[in-house]
Every structure is written in structure tokens, then in C-alpha cells.
């Protein structure tokens, strides 16, 4: 697929550049709120909304915002949308708001959003940035939904709160340890599926302290 096309800007977030499973960003909400499938979807959609809106605004203002203050400006814009989402969820879906708790406000520091703002929206046009935000957000939602489903089915024997009457449940999947385990397995499957190679071994050549490092076996670069 042409990497410059608008379709690719949208689709890449699902598998190829999935923010959670491939880029390993936004681990905090991924591990914390995915004890239930519905929580995962709620968190994912809230993040998608913020990502979509902030990408549009940042892309629209990219020529107005001076380079020296671009990061503070991005953060203000992102936090505005996060607070907006917080208010709206609190007023209209209080049950979800209380389940997501602190992690809703913490979308503000989710590295996916700042990452997309800095890496994509500040360099690309409005339409592409909007599509990128939407694709990345939905990719994040899909990853959280998968995590949440696995953990809810194995950990509490239910799916979307409906009891499945499983003969055996493993409560550890609902706890943090089970979260890491599930995430590891899913990442492994996605790597296999996308046939990505594990990252190549990084040498000492690029290390700034190679000259003084006692552990450096390759000696000083250059």
C-alpha cells in the first residue's frame, strides 16, 4: 500500500503501526483499565476522541504555533480535550466515568497523543491528521478491547458483564500480573502475524558515554 495515501494514514494504526501492540506506547491505561471488555472500549473511545480532536486542532494551527513553544501549546490543546471528555463522561455516562477513574484524566499524559501530535499532526495536513488520529485511536481501542475481553473471560468468567458460566476462572487475569501476561502474549501474536523481526541488537556505536563506559566491549566508536 502506498504510504503517502490517505487510506494508509487511517489504516496503519490498526496493525502495522498499532500504538499499543507495535509501538508500545500508552502502556499505563492499557494495563490498568482492561479488566473488563467494556472498560477497554470506553477508555479506547475516550482516547480516540481526544486524539482525533487534538490532531485536527494541532494540524490546523501548525503554521501559527511558533516552534519554540510548540510542546506547551500541544499539551494545552490536548489537556483541554481531555478535560472536556472528563466533564462530558461525568455528566452523561457516570458509571463508565467512575470505572475509568484517574486514568481518564491521565489521557492528558498518554504518550500516544503527544506522540502523534509531534510526529504527525504538526507536519501534515488537516485531513491526513484527522484520519491518522482516528486510525490510531481505533487501533488503540481494538487493542484495549482484545486485552479486556481476554482478561474478563479468563479472569471473571464473563463477557460485557454477562456471566458465561465457565467451569474454571483464573482471578489472576484480573489482577496486574495477569495484565502483563495477557499483553505479552498478544504482542507476541501480533509480531508473528505482522512477520516483524525483533529489534536488531543495538551496539555501543551510538552511545554518548561509550568512551567512559566500563561495560562497553566494543571500545570507543569512530
Amino acid at each position: 500500500m502506498d504510504k503517502k495515501s490517505n487510506l494508509y494514514a487511517f489504516v496503519k494504526g490498526f496493525v502495522n503501526e498499532n500504538p499499543t501492540l507495535v509501538m508500545l506506547l500508552g502502556m499505563c491505561p492499557t494495563l490498568a483499565v482492561t479488566t473488563m471488555a467494556s472498560n477497554g472500549i470506553g477508555m479506547g473511545l475516550a482516547t480516540t476522541f481526544v486524539l482525533f480532536c487534538s490532531n485536527i486542532v494541532i494540524s490546523a494551527l501548525r503554521k501559527v504555533i511558533p516552534g519554540t513553544v510548540r510542546l506547551p501549546c500541544f499539551i494545552v490543546i490536548i489537556t483541554t480535550f481531555v478535560t472536556l471528555t472528563d466533564f462530558i463522561l461525568k455528566a452523561y455516562i457516570p458509571a463508565l466515568h467512575s470505572r475509568l477513574g484517574i486514568f481518564l484524566s491521565l489521557i492528558a499524559v498518554n504518550c500516544i497523543i503527544l506522540g502523534r501530535a509531534e510526529a504527525f499532526a504538526s507536519k501534515n495536513g488537516l485531513l491526513r491528521s484527522a484520519l491518522d488520529g482516528l486510525g490510531m485511536g481505533l487501533g488503540f481501542t481494538a487493542a484495549l478491547f482484545t486485552m479486556g475481553s481476554v482478561r474478563e473471560i479468563l479472569g471473571s468468567g464473563a463477557f460485557f458483564g454477562i456471566d458465561l458460566n465457565l467451569p474454571l476462572v483464573f482471578p489472576i487475569f484480573v489482577m496486574p500480573a495477569g495484565g502483563f501476561f495477557t499483553l505479552g502474549i498478544i504482542i507476541a501474536i501480533v509480531y508473528k502475524f505482522t512477520k516483524r523481526k525483533p529489534p536488531a541488537k543495538v551496539g555501543c556505536a551510538a552511545c554518548p558515554i561509550a568512551a567512559d563506559c566500563v561495560n562497553c566491549k566494543e571500545g570507543v566508536a569512530e
Partner: peptide, 21 residues
């Protein structure tokens, strides 16, 4: 520029907060 962005954000949030509080 930063000041203007902050002011616009604050006004927007005040408005939404009044609406949903």
C-alpha cells in the same frame, strides 16, 4: 500565542463545565 491558546481553552472549558456540572 501560548497565552491566546490557554485563554481560548479556559473559556471553552468554563462553558462546558457550566453546561455539564
Amino acid at each position: 500565542t501560548l497565552l491566546i491558546i490557554c485563554a481560548v481553552s479556559a473559556l471553552l472549558l468554563v462553558f462546558v463545565h457550566d453546561l455539564t456540572a
